[in-house]
Amino acid sequence: MALLEVKDLTKAFGGVTAIADLHFKVPENKVYSVIGPNGAGKTTLFNMLSGIYHPDEGSIRFLDQEIIGKEPHAVAEMGLSRTFQNLQMFFNMTVLDNVLVGCHLRTHSGLFSAAFRLPSVIREERVARQWAEEALAFCGLEEYSRQHADALPYGVLKRIEIARALAVQPKLLLMDEPAAGLNDTETLEMRSLIRRISESGITVLLVEHNMGLVMQVSDRILVLDYGSRLAEGTPEEIQNNPQVIEAYLGGEVQYAV
């Protein structure tokens, strides 16, 4: 069954077409990657999938429900979470608080009960804290829990964003270039993290430039070129697709790990 189904998706910015007539299906419990050169429309695609941009045409069905027209918070409520290419940390908070924000949808106390700190709030805080700590532990971040987000290195921040998105307990996780700016060791850690996320039953939709990583973790790959679908298939199919090699990989690919 397809968790996410995109049909005839089109988006233009002032006459420049960013996404043209795109269609693809993301199967459940798989790692699905979208690759393509800079400006191919990958981030635009993510922004439409998460409700930040509204497409000009087409449909995006997630769990058999239309996403288009919904605001991001409503999309999140359906079970879709994401990370960002340019970090969108809450730099004014601690790491733990960042991840606690991820627990927003799983908790329910309102302003009034919070203001008077009713016993229900205290109970809920305790549970949420546990959830947040679990998400941090999952991403290997326990040690940073009490630190301020504005004082941490880039690689750690990238993982905090993932922990925050996992705290939402999404069915689908959109990851926008998780390995960008990471060194080799960090990239290896990221690879195993993506695998563990997938194994825990969360479908992953990945945009990434590091081809080695993409080929190793993906079940299927979609290749975008100028906002259109160039090819789609398993990593082997993509690596051997002459069109892809010609148009995008340029025939001189090295699969570095």
Binding site: S81, F84, N92
Partner: peptide, 11 residues
């Protein structure tokens, strides 16, 4: 901190 990220967390 970040309006888009807040929205994506369901706020």
């Amino acid at each position: 901190g970040s309006e888009v990220a807040a929205e994506m967390m369901g706020i």
